[in-house]
Structures are given as structure tokens and as C-alpha cells.
């Protein structure tokens, strides 16, 4: 027993050397270890006004002690000579800085590829060129140089002017492709942002083909208030036709629907049939009541009037027949109602 006492005494002495780490609070404090945050809902004592600075410091010390106590309970790790504690996820929620990310809208090509199940094939960054005998980049940096080395001479076809600069022509074609791609990009942006873009028009007059001019003239003809109904037409003149032309002409029917596939057509037909078969007569209660009333009234009026019975017990309450006499109307009493009863 002596040994136990001794040990206990020793420990008590040891602990007396240090200050306690225990803190007592009336109301429970909220600790968020993930955010290293503690909220103390206990109200202050009078000491705050007298000795503000020391009071706040002591209060904060107690709260930090509580926070540290709970942090020291968390699982620790050793990470190159430092003891690291793993913090839980913070519970105190903070607002975001930006909206939630939304998926990028698909481009027209991407939509098409998705519908058709076309997958993107990755090209190699460099390919072996037999002619040059070296690896040549497929795109980007140094591609231009390799191309110049390979196609250092170009043949002029027989059917065109022999003085044409084929290099310039090649350059122009490339520029045109770039411009086309840029236009497609713009259209994709417009589609993603739901902006209306005019579909009519061509770049310049000299680049318009006969077909384009025909479309333009047809559109112009139909662009009157009466959608071209009273416009004179040349003999044998016809409206422009082609893919997507119909939609451009004002007044023409909007896009024709594609023929449905078997399955959807079937379901749609069944739906319409079922809709018709499932129809129930609608009952307009108000109207029904009106009709009923009218019928009753007609029946009543057609019947010969019965002499009214006198009630013996309440002779005074017997109603006088007929309506209350109105001023300005000569006739009294047995007046047949004229016309419809107005309500």
C-alpha cells in the first residue's frame, strides 16, 4: 500500500508543478477542428467592463485550450521530423467565390460526332516522311519548314493560266480554311450563348454564285408585308430550292419534320388514340344547375296554378302572391314574366 501511496503522492506533486489544462464552461462550446475555430456562446461576466484586456485574454486562452485539447486527440502522423495532425473536414460552411462549373456546350461537330458515335482519333505528333527521310511534325512548330522542304516546287495544271502563282494559291486556300474554321467557331459561340445570327447573306458580290443570287432574289421577293403574294414574276421563274433554303424564305412553311422512326410513330399514334378513348364528358356544374333550374321553371309555369293553402297557425306570415309593386308600372298582380329572367 505504501508504494501506491508514494506513487500517487509523487504524481500529485508533479502535476502541481504545472498549471491545469482543464477548462470548465457552463454552456458547451462549438469546436470546428477543420477550420481551427471555436465559438463560445457563454455570456460575459462583469469583469469585462472593469478589466477588459486581461479578461478577453483569459477567455481566449481558455477557449484556445479547449480547441488544442480536441486537436491533440486527433490522429497524428510523422512527416520528416514533424508531427502532423490530420484535420477533419470543416463544418462551418463558407460561400463560394464563383458559380458552380457547368459542362462546356458542345460544338456542332461534337454534337454530330456524338450522335453518330464518331470517336476522336489522336494523331501522332510526328510522322516519318519517306521523301525527306526524317521525322516531320504533323502540326505546329517546324511543320511549315518541313512542308516547304517537301513541296519546294509545285506543278501548274494544264487547264489554268500558266502564269498563276501556285504557292500563292496554296496560301490562299489555307487562309480560306482558317477563315471557315473561325466562322464555325463564332457560330458555335453564338449557339452556346443563344444569340440569333442572320443566316442570309454572302461575303461579297463577286463571290456570289448563281445559286446564291437566286436564293437572295427569292428571299427579297418574299420579304414584303404580304410575303410576296402580289409580286410579279418572270415567265418560268421558280423559287430557290435546296437544303435549308426553305427556312430562309419568309412565309414559307417552317422546317419540315423528319419522318419518324417506327417506334416513336407507333407510340405517338397509340398515345393519340388513347387520349381520344380516355376522354370523359366534362361536366360544367354551374351550367348544369342553370339548365336544371330553367327546366324546372318552365315546368312550373306550364302547370295550372294551384290555389295556395292557408297555414292555420301563422295567418300573418302568409305571403301575398305576385311581386312587390314597382313604381311606374300600371299593371299589378297577375303578370306573366316577360322574357328571360335576368340574374
Amino acid at each position: 500500500m505504501d508504494i501506491v501511496k508514494e506513487v500517487l503522492e509523487k504524481q500529485a506533486k508533479e502535476s502541481a508543478k504545472y498549471k491545469s489544462i482543464e477548462v470548465i464552461k457552463h454552456e458547451e462550446v462549438k469546436i470546428d477542428c477543420g477550420r481551427l475555430m471555436i465559438s463560445d456562446p457563454n455570456s460575459f461576466t462583469e469583469e469585462l467592463k472593469e478589466n477588459t484586456e486581461t479578461y478577453i485574454q483569459n477567455l481566449t486562452r481558455d477557449n484556445v485550450q479547449l480547441l488544442v485539447n480536441s486537436i491533440w486527440q486527433l490522429p497524428t502522423e510523422r512527416l520528416d521530423e514533424h508531427i502532423v495532425v490530420k484535420l477533419p473536414k470543416p463544418t462551418f460552411a463558407l460561400p463560394r467565390a464563383r458559380k458552380l462549373p457547368v459542362p462546356k456546350p458542345l460544338t456542332k461537330w461534337e454534337q454530330f460526332a456524338k450522335a453518330k458515335g464518331i470517336k476522336k482519333r489522336t494523331k501522332d505528333k510526328k510522322v516519318w516522311d519517306e521523301e525527306l527521310g526524317k521525322w516531320v511534325p504533323t502540326y505546329g512548330y517546324q511543320k511549315f519548314k518541313a512542308d516547304r522542304d517537301k513541296n519546294w516546287v509545285l506543278e501548274v495544271p494544264k487547264n489554268i493560266d500558266p502564269m498563276t502563282d501556285m504557292f500563292q494559291k496554296k496560301k490562299d486556300l489555307k487562309n480560306e480554311r482558317v477563315a471557315k474554321n473561325e466562322l464555325a467557331r463564332m457560330k458555335n459561340i453564338a449557339r452556346a450563348q443563344k444569340v440569333d445570327v442572320p443566316r442570309v447573306g454572302f461575303v461579297s458580290e463577286d463571290s456570289a454564285t448563281a445559286k446564291e443570287l437566286h436564293i437572295a432574289s427569292t428571299i427579297a421577293k418574299h420579304s414584303t408585308a404580304s410575303v410576296g403574294k402580289f409580286q410579279e414574276s418572270l415567265p418560268k421563274e421558280k423559287n430557290a430550292r435546296g437544303i435549308g433554303v426553305r427556312e430562309l424564305i419568309p412565309g414559307a412553311a417552317t422546317k419540315r419534320k423528319r419522318p419518324l422512326d417506327n417506334k416513336t410513330e407507333r407510340t405517338e399514334q397509340i398515345e393519340t388514340v388513347q387520349k381520344i378513348l380516355n376522354k370523359r364528358p366534362k361536366i360544367d356544374v354551374e351550367k348544369a344547375v342553370q339548365i336544371q333550374k330553367r327546366e324546372e321553371r318552365i315546368e312550373r309555369e306550364n302547370k295550372p296554378a294551384e290555389p295556395k293553402k292557408k297555414k292555420g297557425s301563422h295567418p300573418k306570415q302568409v305571403k301575398k302572391f305576385g311581386k312587390k309593386p314597382k313604381s311606374g308600372i300600371g299593371r299589378k298582380g297577375n303578370r306573366k314574366p316577360a322574357g328571360r329572367k335576368r340574374r
Partner: peptide, 9 residues
């Protein structure tokens, strides 16, 4: 990273 202490009811 500082600890944040909120005192008061």
C-alpha cells in the same frame, strides 16, 4: 493558419 475564437452569446 490562425485559430479563430468567437466569444460572446
Amino acid at each position: 493558419k490562425p485559430c479563430l475564437v468567437f466569444n460572446g452569446d
